[in-house]
Amino acid sequence: TLTDPSRRQAGSNQGPLELRSRHCKFLSYMFYQAVRDHKPVWMLEDMRTMEYFYWEENASLRTYSPSEALLYAVVHNHLPYAQYLLSHFPEEALQVPGEHFCYCPSSAPHLAMAVTYDRRDILGLIIKIAHKLPSLNSYINRTGCFHLEDGKTPLHLACELLRSETVLILLGNGASPRIKDSKGLTPLDVILEQMWDSKVNVASKKLCLDYLLLFMPSPQFKMRKILQDHPDHWTALLGEDKFNSLVGNTPTSLYLQAMQTILQSLPPSHFPKSIQELPIPQDLMGHGD
């Protein structure tokens, strides 16, 4: 299935260039399959640096970049290979892949992919490298393509997918809950919209909401008007204190204010170790290592 059937039938009549093209296309597929099958790192690196042709016609001979290889490692959860690529090629591995991958130059596709596929171990490795490189100072807050991905940050994606542990990991490592996507929605809006639209997974939604509020003093969000217009619904869903705080009827609780102050003082590069040493409720500790 790797080549056109008519070409397979006429294989005996193909010239050396076309045969080499087919062979290189096969090698490119073999590399993808090898990452998927979690082959050893040394084997993957040998395959990655082999020259191959892209699937498109008239493409030039080339090799896979560390960035492209890391995308495959994230998708297929090949942790040892991700570790190797990030430790040996930290800046190259986190570059936006080439023109044959549809990503905006200012996006963070590896981080977004790790959130989407729930690869928290690889997510942690990526964030750790980003903290060390000045060129990736704002990496965790990069937005996706405004045309294809609605300008979502990785935090937007984590909230959309209700990955509460990932939400906390991102927030603790410097992800801003105030950035808006192309629709003007903050991550808090994303959660509130889901709570408004459906009663499914309410516990996960509430946990994501609580984590966001821990890192968001004086929250500003687009859904405030809907909360104000339907007080009974939201009071029953959130509780009276949280509802009144969100719509601005009352200040946030002293406990939440104290936690916000403490968390703001923690250096993101030491998260989650720094939060594990705080005397906070156990449910805030279940964010993974």
Rank of each mutant, 00 (worst) to 15 (best):
L2V: 14
T3S: 09
D4H: 12
P5K: 11
S6P: 08
S6D: 15
R8K: 13
A10C: 15
G11L: 05
S12P: 09
N13F: 11
G15V: 00
P16T: 08
L17K: 08
E18P: 11
R22L: 03
R22D: 14
L27F: 02
S28I: 02
M30E: 15
F31H: 10
F31Q: 07
F31T: 12
V35M: 04
H38S: 11
K39P: 08
V41H: 02
W42A: 11
W42E: 04
M43Y: 13
R48Q: 03
R48S: 01
T49V: 03
E51H: 08
E51D: 13
Y52S: 06
F53H: 15
Y54N: 12
E57H: 11
N58Y: 15
A59R: 08
S60G: 15
R62S: 12
T63D: 14
Y64C: 02
S65W: 08
S67N: 06
Y72W: 11
V75C: 05
H76M: 07
N77W: 01
N77E: 11
H78V: 02
L79E: 00
L79F: 04
P80Y: 01
P80R: 06
Q83L: 13
Y84K: 10
Y84L: 13
A93M: 05
C102W: 04
Y103S: 01
S106W: 05
P109E: 06
L111Y: 09
D121M: 05
I122C: 04
I126C: 03
I126E: 00
I129G: 07
I129F: 05
A130H: 03
H131E: 02
K132A: 10
L133N: 02
N137E: 06
I140P: 05
N141L: 03
L148R: 11
P154W: 06
L155Q: 05
L155D: 07
H156E: 06
H156N: 04
A158M: 12
E160G: 00
L162R: 15
S164C: 10
V167S: 09
L168V: 00
I169H: 01
L170E: 00
G172S: 00
G174L: 08
G174C: 03
G174V: 10
G174T: 07
I179T: 02
K180G: 04
S182Q: 06
K183S: 08
G184D: 07
G184R: 06
M195L: 14
W196C: 12
V200N: 07
Y211F: 15
L214C: 03
L214W: 06
M216H: 09
S218L: 04
F221H: 13
I226M: 03
H233S: 07
A236Y: 09
A236F: 09
L238E: 03
L238T: 01
E240Q: 14
E240S: 13
N244M: 09
V247K: 06
V247S: 02
N249P: 10
L256H: 12
L256K: 01
A258G: 08
M259P: 10
M259R: 03
L266W: 04
P267G: 07
P268K: 05
S269D: 08
F271M: 10
S274K: 08
S274C: 05
S274N: 07
Q276R: 09
E277G: 06
P279N: 05
I280E: 04
P281S: 13
D283P: 04
L284V: 14
M285A: 15
H287N: 14
